[in-house]
Design a protein around this nucleic acid. Structure first.
Lengths: 235, 235
DNA sequence: CTGACTTAGTGTATTTTTTACACTTCTACA
DNA sequence: TGTAGAAGTGTAAAAAATACACTAAGTCAG
């Protein structure tokens, strides 16, 4: 345990390292944001990067991603979806590294990320105002954004970005942000309510010098049931 | 090179193996088929499995997949798309193995696959009549089928499965096979022709005791141009 | 207390898209 | 030459998507 610092694991053939990286999207200040950490160590020390790191041997890929995320940003209990696997030869100066990328949507407001472990800082950046990223993380992020835009059209994933109780205007605004275009209020409401995946609550939004809006909640069970029946959610 | 058979590559931390596996779909005898190889070696010697194997260090993931495919089945020059990465702990009895799965569509008729290398045989199996598969390959195949069914709805991928020149009836039949339901002939033609991604040829189908059908060709350039304009292909 | 301000909330008419549906055409072969 | 068999074609009805403008409910300032 003292001087045995190298050559502890030997194999007949060379092996690549496997890492996981997470693209976390959040919504705050009326902007779509992504969570980045500032790297504490080389390579790319001081540079911004996606949270992530090496997998452990007795952990599934997703578990690795969740662990790294918690270690570096303090965030936990997040639903991750696998995005893509990046394995080009030159992508990591330390040697051949395969990175399995995950992405997730969270309520940025609820998650005050703080840097820890291999990260000296963690911060939410607007997706249209990003710093230069380490490794090929710009490419990974780009891939995630494309996926998000495609996905939001036919899956009700947007709900993950909002507080559990939200107004229809908030929901519409979210869709407009992700899709990058305005939607008609009446048509949006008609459509989304017609899907019966929203549960109308008996509460209204507090505060503000205007008519208070009704609050709704996403009805996941109802949604899952509809999906099973072959329902096609599409905005 | 003679007795140095172990411990040639050493690392400070344990590393997982990385493999690639390919799900190749083909069309023949009016059935959707998938290409399997019979494993020549342990583990699972004699069992059917997806073609695939370990990556090399100086090869991209896709290049590895193409190489393995050629080694084991003789097929080459195929457009592969990354499907998903499978990395659960118990999936390979040899130890922790991460498999990056790819999938592709080819004209089964044109590709007389023959077993070679680590495969003692290669054969096309109808997707609804599969043998028991090695590793977690049944899961991978299932994932590929789901993806294919989802994808065929909004991308004109089916064309890869047909000969370069094909009739509208063949195309319709293909869609029916993949989607698993019948389509109306007139509506199908109206829709597909309305997309202007098919080029009508001056040839007709030969042979057969019936009215010969016009031949068409997929117009990839036209399709790519439409996609750039934000065109949404959907059957 | 009331009027001004701000966002919430609502319905209908038009256009477009999707669906359902049946007969004629063309060729090979008996 | 006529019969078998797939190819090929149009229209009407239903459903979905779109465009569009006013009233309602609350806060706050005066």
């Amino acid at each position: 345990m003292s001087k045995e610092t190298k050559a502890k694991y030997s194999y007949d053939f060379p092996r690549a390292s496997v890492t996981v990286d997470c693209v976390l999207f959040g919504l705050s200040e009326d902007k779509l944001k992504v969570l980045l950490i500032q790297r504490a160590h080389d390579p790319f020390a001081g540079k911004w990067a996606l949270p992530g790191g090496f997998i452990e041997m007795e952990e599934s890929l997703e578990a690795s991603a969740l662990r790294e995320l918690e270690e570096e940003t303090g965030l936990s209990k997040i639903y991750l979806e696998q995005l893509y696997t990046f394995g080009d030869c030159g992508r990591d100066p330390r040697g051949r590294t395969i990175s399995v990328a995950y992405f997730a949507l969270v309520q940025a407001a609820e998650h005050h990320a703080k840097g820890a472990d291999d990260a000296s800082a963690a911060e939410w950046f607007p997706v249209d105002k990003l710093p230069k990223l380490a490794f090929d993380h710009a490419k990974i992020l780009d891939c995630a954004l494309t996926r998000l835009r495609a996905k939001v059209r036919y899956q009700p994933i947007g709900f993950e970005l909002l507080p559990r109780k939200f107004t229809l205007s908030q929901l519409q605004r979210l869709y407009e942000l992700i899709l990058g275009r305005e939607l008609d209020k009446r048509n949006f409401r008609k459509k989304i309510l017609g899907m019966s995946v929203l549960e109308e609550l008996d509460e209204v939004e507090a505060g503000g010098a205007r008519r208070p809006a009704k609050l709704y909640r996403f009805h996941r069970k109802q949604y899952d049931a509809l999906v099973k029946q072959g329902f096609h959610f599409e905005i």
